[in-house]
Design a protein around this nucleic acid. Structure first.
Lengths: 170, 170
DNA sequence: GTCGAAAATGAAAATTGTTTTCGTAATCCA
DNA sequence: TGGATTACGAAAACAATTTTCATTTTCGAC
């Protein structure tokens, strides 16, 4: 499964992001470094909502000398460059999401299996705009998170078990 | 302004909450203490979305010996008793909100002056339910936060200046 | 290419917000 | 009014993140 996913990495997507980041670095007068390249290349090969720890673990496989500080610093740059969104579901722990096609979207989070799915609905967006307008408010951005449970209990259990197994193995 | 607000404290509201908390404490077999009484009485006299620090500052005026630990512990009890909601807007810092009439509501947060206003819209709720259903998902709770700016720049500036002044004074 | 200023790195220390520990004190039911 | 139970407060621990600082790397000017 994870294997399968890894094989599906879209090299063009990764290249595109790398290029965009390089452009950003250039524009800001910052410097290109091996570490940053490793980190962003690793980041965009992963999918989903990645924690710093998860990313660092992967990054260390390519270069074990890279530490938390550099990963944090690079993630901040990625956020600043608008290539990545920072999310905080529930408590503390930040997660980072490299957005692909869908620019903006909201999230549904299953409290059982941890599944995070994304959705976008123009009527919802419009309604928010309308409500903001009624309150003399201008929206820059918003966040909407639906917490609940999958209705497909089988799939949900499967994911839950897999997660448990992974936690075991780690 | 703050003065005016202080005078408007609804003593019945405070009494009601104190009684409800006492009942909760009783039901759980916990003990009534002077500190807890001070904290909840102080809390429900404040309004808005209160941080632990803000609360502690007020509490210390009544009893300077009360420290962070007890405030945190009491806030947890308040959340557990359902008399208070915990919110986390944007980053880290938890804020606590003693809910009055409106059970559930969402928030608009002005990034300029920090104003937090609350709203509720049944169509929005219904639409969320519909979208969840389409994704075979059951919502337990949700959070929606609109980040942006007040359109009334004058009022916004006034609040911003007041906040700056308060920060000065503190 | 090489110099040198500017920026980046990594390890460790610092910060922030919050929780836990632990010895002492208060509560409250029998 | 014990005395077991619970709470308190100060300080230590914690987890996530940021900063510091000495060292190394980058890259444009020469």
């Amino acid at each position: 499964m994870a294997q399968e996913q890894k094989d599906q990495v879209d090299e063009n997507f990764v290249k595109e992001k790398e290029a965009a980041f390089a452009e950003f670095i250039q524009r800001k007068g910052l410097k290109t470094t091996r570490q940053r390249n490793t980190i962003i290349s690793t980041f965009f090969r992963l999918r989903g909502h990645i924690s710093v720890e998860e990313l660092l673990t992967e990054v260390k496989k390519a270069n074990p000398r890279i530490g938390y500080a550099t990963v944090y610093r690079t993630l901040h740059l990625l956020v600043e460059s608008n290539l990545v969104d920072e999310r905080r579901f529930g408590y503390g722990l930040a997660r980072y999401e490299g957005h692909s096609d869908v620019e903006h979207h909201d999230h549904m989070i299953c409290l059982e299996c941890g599944m995070i799915s994304e959705f976008f609905n123009p009527r919802l967006e419009a309604l928010q705009e309308k409500l903001a307008e009624e309150n003399n408010f201008t929206i820059f951005r918003h966040r909407l998170e639906l917490y609940g449970a999958c209705q497909d209990k089988e799939a949900c259990d499967r994911r839950k078990n897999q997660k448990a197994a992974e936690a075991q193995g780690a």
